[in-house]
């Protein structure tokens, strides 16, 4: 790990230079008031400060909406050839906020656990992450501090923190980060950790929305609730459209389907994003639906974020508080409100 001091202008130039050599993805403004991670072009606007969470989180660059797992070909002699499809191209994702970094860190854990997910990991290991510390809540919906993701830096190859007097503190955290930083004229900084504590730009307190309990205690409040009126309260307006799953940086469920080409001899198998809020998610071959009610599906979604995966992996809440699901829900359902209600409801 090494520390450097530099200026915003230098970092911007460095991102442009890196983008001329490798694909670099950076938040770009689009539409009416939205952001998305897009490949940096010569004329891209590189600015870190004005930002609301991108429509899709950066982790989705590593888990594409539709991804080929394998291709096959039946030969005339009756033999079938099957090959896995792996994307091993290199990319940099820059301007990643701590909440999204934590999400990628968690997805790494989930997809390395047990049988590793080769398709994700091949892409992930060929990806460099450049993080950027938040010094102000990016909008009124976030609750990153309440779920302990505001200060997450693990998983970043380079992490940049704005200091009080306008300079930037650059932490180069990995070998890959060293390679990316090679040739820059950033000023070496010997007291990096101390500066990070003492001179980080002022941050408001509280930072974003908060819960009346600590991040550690959310688990208990959710885990204790199986039968609760809260599960019914928030689904009255639910469309079961799955938007909350699809924009979530820690959702990774997928469906798998095959396609045969019109030559009737070759084809492929792809996976696509799926979501536990979609009505068909738990339907088996015979037609039985194991979670037919939106309330049961929502309970599953919330418990997966705050109880099931928390218990299994021991890294706290699996919700990173980015607020995307609530922001994009057309029925105005917000996971923050559900959890807050569960906490406020007290012991059942």
């Amino acid at each position: 790990m090494s520390y450097y001091l530099t200026t915003l202008q230098n970092i911007t130039n460095w991102i442009r230079k890196t983008a001329s050599e490798n694909p670099v993805y950076f938040p770009e403004k689009f539409g009416h008031a939205s952001y998305r991670f897009a490949e940096v072009k010569a004329d891209s606007d590189i600015q870190f400060e004005h930002y609301t969470p991108t429509v899709l989180p950066p982790v989705k660059l590593l888990i594409p909406a539709r991804e080929e797992l394998l291709s096959f070909k039946k030969h005339a002699d009756g033999k079938t050839e099957i090959n896995p499809t792996l994307d091993e191209s290199f990319r940099v994702i820059a301007g990643v906020r701590p909440c999204d970094l934590k999400a990628i860190f968690l997805i790494d854990l989930f997809l390395k656990d047990g049988v590793p997910d080769a398709h994700y990991l091949a892409r992930r290991e060929n990806t460099a992450l450049v993080g950027w510390a938040c010094t102000a809540p990016c909008d009124s919906r976030v609750f990153c501090a309440a779920v302990d993701s505001l200060h997450h830096t693990e998983g970043a190859d380079i992490f940049i923190t704005p200091l009080k007097h306008g300079d930037l503190l650059v932490e180069v955290k990995t070998e890959l980060g060293e390679k990316l930083a090679a040739g820059t004229d950033w000023q070496t900084c010997d007291d990096g950790p101390a500066r990070k504590v003492g001179t980080v730009a002022d941050m408001p307190e509280p930072f974003g929305r908060t819960f009346p309990v600590t991040a550690q205690d959310i688990y208990k409040n959710v885990a204790e609730k199986w039968k609760s009126p809260v599960w019914d309260k928030h689904v009255e307006r639910c469309f079961s459209c799955g938007s909350c799953n699809l924009v979530c940086p820690t959702c990774y469920c997928f469906d798998v389907s095959d396609d045969m080409n019109l030559d009737v001899a070759s084809g492929n198998r792809t996976r696509t994003w799926d979501g536990c809020m979609l009505p068909h998610f738990a339907v088996v071959g015979g037609g039985h639906n194991f979670r037919p009610d939106p309330a049961a599906r929502q309970r599953h979604r919330v418990k997966r974020k705050f109880e099931y995966l928390t218990e299994k992996f021991g890294h706290g809440a699996v919700c990173v508080g980015c607020g995307r699901c609530g922001r994009q829900c057309t029925a105005k359902i917000d996971i923050y409100d559900i959890v807050a209600d569960l906490i406020n409801e007290g012991d059942q």
Binding site: F30, R36, V55, C241, G242, V247, T272, W273
Partner: peptide, 11 residues
């Protein structure tokens, strides 16, 4: 909405 989100559209 499912495909709209997969396409990364602004709502």
């Amino acid at each position: 909405c499912v495909e709209c989100k997969k396409n990364g559209n602004e709502c």
